[in-house]
Design a protein around this nucleic acid. Sequence first.
DNA 1: GCCCAGGTGGGTA
DNA 2: TACCCACATGGG
Length: 203
Amino acid sequence: MDRYGPQGWWPGEGPFEVMVGAILTQSSAWANVEQAIANLKAAGALTPRALRDLPLPELARLIRPSGYYNAKAVKLKALADWLGESCRDSLEQLFSRDTAQLRRELLSVHGIGEETADSMLLYAGEKPSFVVDAYTRRILHRLGLAGERQSYASLQALFAENLPQEVPLFKEYHALLVRHGKSTCWRRAPACAQCCLKDLCRY
DNA sequence: GCCCAGGTGGGTA
DNA sequence: TACCCACATGGG
C-alpha cells in the first residue's frame, strides 16, 4: 500500500471517511482537513448516523480547523441525511449502483459538485471517474491542451477518451498532476514538460 | 501582513 | 448562461 502515487495520496480509513474528507478539503489545505477528521474520529462521529445525531454547532466546532466550518457542517449533514435516505447508510449498496446514475445522484446533494462527486466515486467507490481539479486545469491549459475556461465535462472527457478506464491509472494520473501542480518548476519554466510531468507520458 | 490551499452554492445581470 | 461573491483556517 505504500506504492507510488494515489494510494498514499488520499489517506483515509474506509469509504465514508474518504467521502467526508472530499467535502472538508474543498478549497482547503489537506493538513487542516486531517485535524478536522482527527477531531471527528475522537468524537466518534465518523459514521453517517453519528453525523446526523450531532448538533450542527457541535459538528461545526469539531471541523473548525478545515476552514469554512459552518458551511461544511451543513454539507456534511446533507451528505449524512442523504446516505440514510438513499441507501440506509450502506456504502456497499450505494457504490453497487450504475456509476453514471450514482454521479447524478451525488450531484443532487448539497455541497457535492463535480470534483467532489468524482473524488468520491474514484477514491471511495473505486469507480473509474476522472477527477479534474484546479491543478489539472492549469496544467492542461499550460500545455496548450485546453482553453482557460473549458468546461469540467470537456476536460474530463479528454482523459476518459484517451486512457484505459482503470481505477489505479485514474488515481495515479490525478496524483501525478497534483504533484506536478504543487511543484514550482512549471510556473517558472514555460516548457517544463521534461520535468516531473514526463511520468505522465508513459501512458 | 499577504497569498493560497485537493470547490460549491446562491445571487445578480 | 456567465460572472461575482461568501464561506474561514493555517502554513509559507
